[in-house]
């Protein structure tokens, strides 16, 4: 077998020659056995095959090169961001209000406005506008050790000014879930 013939046999092989065991080699065709024999004798062909395997290893190394540490973090963050459902508000407004002809019998988002408009009209009919507006305190205060219903005076820094309330404590609660906090306080008090 000459070098060209050897390359032809080698080209059709999926496994490198080195991986073929001697036992299997006997079972292979004569051509395969001849190619193996040629490889043992011909240094030129042996070097070509070594270079080919070396080149494949270089590509494998390049493929498996570990990216920078931030890469995985950014990938994960981006996927997480894309998986998050759009906020309800955004989803509602992303729907066209007039998705169907306005007198269509099928449901469409614009219908949601009808009961809202009716209730608003009803409220405005029975209550003057200034009464509808609730009188909300600007600040919410939580207090411990005080007497329910008793009026306390506080200064601009939220300190109690009543002289005989040294044991009371007042906390300015600027959190959204202040009501939960109060309920929890009552529960603790009742347990104690």
């Amino acid at each position: 077998m000459n070098c060209d013939e050897f390359i032809k046999v080698w080209a059709g092989k999926l496994e490198p020659f080195a991986k073929v065991s001697p036992d299997k080699l006997h079972a292979e065709s004569n051509e395969e056995a001849e190619a193996c024999h040629h490889l043992q004798e011909c240094r030129r062909c042996a070097r070509k095959i070594d270079t080919f395997d070396f080149a494949l290893n270089l590509i494998r190394d390049e493929i498996h090169k570990e990216p920078a540490a931030a890469f995985w973090h950014n990938l994960r963050a981006e996927i997480k961001k894309q998986l998050k459902p759009a906020p309800l508000r955004q989803r509602f407004f992303s729907r066209p209000i007039f998705s169907r002809p306005i007198f269509s019998r099928q449901w469409q988002p614009v219908w949601a406005l009808v009961p809202v408009a009716l209730v608003t009209l009803l409220l405005l009919t029975f209550f003057p506008l200034n009464l509808v507006t609730p009188s909300r305190p600007d600040n919410i205060f939580l207090m411990s050790g005080g007497i329910p219903g008793f009026e306390y005076e506080i200064d601009s820094e939220n300190n109690l000014t009543n002289e005989d309330d040294a044991n009371s404590e007042i906390i300015y609660a600027a959190i959204d879930n202040w009501a939960d906090l109060l309920a929890e306080t009552i529960e603790i008090n009742s347990n104690s």
Partner: peptide, 17 residues
């Protein structure tokens, strides 16, 4: 500023801890 302690809070008697 005057504040009134929330009326609905559990009544605390004078002897309560």
């Amino acid at each position: 500023m005057k504040i009134r302690l929330w009326e609905k809070q559990r009544n605390l008697s004078a002897t309560a801890p």
